Amino acid sequence: MLTTRHGVRPLGAPDLDAFLALARREPVVNVFADYRATTTNLEPRWLGGEMWGRFVAGELTAACHVGANLVPICATADDAAAFAERALARGRTVSTIVGPQEPVRAFWNGVASSWGRPREARWDQPHLEISTPPHAPIDPYVRRTTKSDMEQLYPACVAMYTEEVGVSPEWGGGTELYRARVAQLVSRGWSYARFDDSGRLVFKAEVACATPYAAQVQGVFVPPEFRGRGLATAGMAAVVELVRREIAPVVSLYVNEWNSPARAVYEKVGFRETARFATVMF
């Protein structure tokens, strides 16, 4: 397949090995892209979009996931600018730009004049990892959720999303799709929670994506009325223990720089910063 200007073209199944070799240069930072590639074989109909690659002298040197999320992979600022030029030709189809800070900023600088004002831009998000047992005591009552937990779990997921993103996932008729996503994570064994003696959910977290190298956690949430009791620290310690034992050896996540309570929790558990992410939301 011929490459376009600046050596950028869509990738497909024949490019999978080259793509995985690229992404696995930074297997934890690129866990989302690795997971998407291996579960879709880079087929657009399964990706729900495209994976673009940039080639230099016939070698894949950078990539960009373009679906609901646009995610640069192993991209320099120059690579991101090349991806931005291609994106301008098709217009904005994504709801979020997210990934390592430098290429996200370079990409945004290339499309900002045409893509309109974002709903929010978060330029400093520490990317955290832990590859050891948790430093804090674990909560022994954190467990995988089941379908029977959905009555408590789903409202907590909606509340977490709304608090974190600033808009409900049910807005605009998204209830069915979001409920299906929560149910999918439950069925995979990627949803964890702790319930009190009366059956109320007091902590939850999910694995968003995973490979043999790493798992990325999302949706960490303690309902407001239960905060300040150490539930998040003990709960996250339990999640780290369970995920490292059952899914992948490294647990990662990214957090807003201004979220001091969450950052304190992750520090107590033993997470360390390894990169900076940025997110632009529409």
Rank of each mutant, 00 (worst) to 15 (best):
D79I: 03
F83I: 01
R92Y: 02
V66E: 07
A62K: 07
V94F: 14
E85M: 08
L70W: 08
A89N: 08
D79H: 11
A82L: 05
T61Y: 00
A80S: 09
L88K: 04
L60Q: 00
I73W: 06
L88Q: 03
T61L: 06
R90V: 13
R90D: 10
L60E: 01
G91I: 09
I73P: 07
H65C: 14
A77G: 15
C74F: 07
E85R: 11
D78G: 12
T96P: 07
R90M: 10
A82N: 05
D78P: 05
I73R: 08
T76W: 04
R90N: 06
S95Y: 12
T61M: 09
A80D: 01
V94L: 08
H65A: 13
F83A: 05
P72T: 03
L60C: 02
R92L: 03
V71H: 07
C74W: 05
D78C: 09
A84F: 07
R86V: 15
R90W: 10
V94T: 13
T76F: 08
T76P: 05
R90G: 13
A87H: 04
V94E: 15
A82K: 01
S95N: 14
A75E: 01
A68R: 15
G91N: 09
T96C: 15
G67Q: 05
E59N: 11
T93M: 07
N69C: 12
P72Y: 00
A81E: 14
A75K: 02
G58T: 05
L88F: 00
A80F: 04
L70Y: 06
G58Q: 03
A62N: 07
A80N: 04
A62H: 08
G67A: 15
A63C: 02
C64L: 14
V66A: 13
N69I: 11
T61W: 02
A75C: 10
S95H: 13
R90C: 06
A84H: 05
C64T: 03
A89W: 07
V94K: 06
R86Y: 11
V66K: 03
A77L: 04
A89Y: 03
E59C: 07
A80C: 02
A87P: 00
A68V: 14
T93C: 12
L88C: 09
V66D: 13
E59H: 12
G91C: 08
A62F: 06
A68Q: 13
L60M: 03
